[in-house]
Computed example of a mutant assay.
Amino acid sequence: MESTGTQRMRHPRLLRLITLGRGNETIETLAETLGVSEKTIRRDLAGLRQLGITIEEHLGHNGRKTYSLSRDSIEQVRFTYDEAFSLMLCRPGTGEFDGTLIGDASKSAFEKIRLALGANQDDYFQRISPWLHRSPGYGDYAEQRDVIDAITLGVEDCKATFIAYRSARSTEPVTYDIHPYGLAEHNGALYVVGHSCHHDEIRTWKIDRMETAEVTEFPFIRPANFNLSEHFKGAFAVIVGSEPVTVRIRFRGSAARYAVERKINTSQTATPGPGGSVDITVTLTSTIEIKSYILSFGSSAEVIEPESLRTEVAEEFQQAIANYTRESLSPLDNTVSKRE
């Protein structure tokens, strides 16, 4: 039996099986085909009905219940022409998910929309596609489809999950159990947010660094007040700290306009600074990620506060200057240069 893993991935297959079964599928046959328990199928059916999909139940001989999908349900999920056109035109790039269930489902869905729009519009999309560009900068998750599947199942079913994780500083993966609360995406990379049983705190893990993930049978209780949006409220991107810190950066020249145009945090405010500069102020709980952002502007950005971040940035620039002002290359560097 093939297990589809997560509820999100089972739902499309479950609906397809019911449709093709033409009223002959039972709880038992659906469970066997999907490789899950009958209890899971009943829960999935209830979830689909809550979404407004009408799944009809038929009582046959000897009390045997079968299921079919109402034609009205299919009508309810039809797009208007302009909705389908807009989806195709604005569809996000999914290259980072190629080879995973998420990527496969996305490609399948957009292919159906493309066919429904017809050949004329398909020619139009082919013609304008060279005019649209999205920066790549995403990970490749084709080889981690099992990891993503396990993590998503752990999130949906609130089950503790064992992960083998290689952090940026470690040379070997470390295995420990986590309680996955949810998934986050940043710049095409996927992250898992949850409780680390080993560290006894909420942490964020990058899926790219997970070598394996295995869902256990041990349930956990997700905190009722936990909300991903609130959790990341004080983050520059995905790293969250404990205490709020006010960060004020002075941007000069063309960088000032760019800084105003791009809002890096919901708490951001902008005030005029001396000599046409602009002061951007944000409240964060971690300054790790914003340091790289500041450094990317070179001399056009200056940290005004906090003093600790100002010192860190200054030390980075001093080290960079030292790297560029060395009197001569080391013997190893000379060897590499000659080979090149």
Results as ranks from 00 to 15, higher is better:
residue 44 D to T: 11
residue 40 T to R: 10
residue 85 F to D: 03
residue 39 K to N: 13
residue 53 I to T: 00
residue 125 F to P: 04
residue 171 T to R: 10
residue 29 T to K: 03
residue 262 R to Y: 07
residue 109 A to H: 14
residue 307 E to L: 15
residue 288 I to M: 08
residue 229 S to L: 10
residue 18 I to C: 00
residue 184 A to Q: 12
residue 126 Q to F: 05
residue 79 F to P: 06
residue 86 S to M: 08
residue 331 P to Y: 03
residue 301 A to K: 00
residue 142 A to Y: 07
residue 150 A to L: 01
residue 168 A to Q: 10
residue 120 N to M: 10
residue 282 V to E: 08
residue 13 R to A: 13
residue 12 P to N: 05
residue 327 E to A: 14
residue 203 R to E: 03
residue 203 R to I: 07
residue 37 S to Y: 07
residue 33 T to F: 03
residue 203 R to G: 03
residue 248 R to A: 12
residue 114 R to D: 09
residue 282 V to N: 04
residue 221 I to P: 00
residue 230 E to W: 12
residue 244 P to T: 05
residue 141 Y to H: 07
residue 1 M to V: 07
residue 186 H to A: 05
residue 219 P to N: 04
residue 122 D to K: 12
residue 184 A to D: 08
residue 188 G to L: 06
residue 65 K to Y: 06
residue 321 I to D: 05
residue 132 L to R: 14
residue 214 E to F: 02
residue 37 S to R: 07
residue 212 T to F: 09
residue 115 L to K: 15
residue 284 L to A: 08
residue 128 I to V: 15
residue 335 T to V: 06
residue 308 S to V: 14
residue 4 T to P: 01
residue 64 R to F: 02
residue 339 R to A: 13
residue 246 T to C: 09
residue 294 I to M: 04
residue 308 S to Y: 06
residue 55 I to C: 03
residue 20 L to S: 06
residue 127 R to G: 03
residue 237 A to D: 05
residue 225 N to K: 09
residue 273 G to N: 01
residue 88 M to Q: 09
residue 116 A to F: 04
residue 287 T to I: 15
residue 57 E to S: 12
residue 107 K to I: 01
residue 197 C to I: 14
residue 206 K to Q: 11
residue 279 D to I: 13
residue 270 A to Q: 05
residue 224 A to P: 01
residue 209 R to S: 12
residue 12 P to W: 05
residue 324 Y to R: 06
residue 183 L to D: 04
residue 202 I to T: 14
residue 323 N to W: 14
residue 307 E to V: 15
residue 4 T to C: 05
residue 13 R to G: 03
residue 172 E to T: 14
residue 237 A to Q: 02
residue 98 D to W: 04
residue 310 R to H: 12
residue 84 A to I: 01
residue 134 R to L: 10
residue 178 I to V: 15
residue 248 R to K: 11
residue 313 V to Y: 09
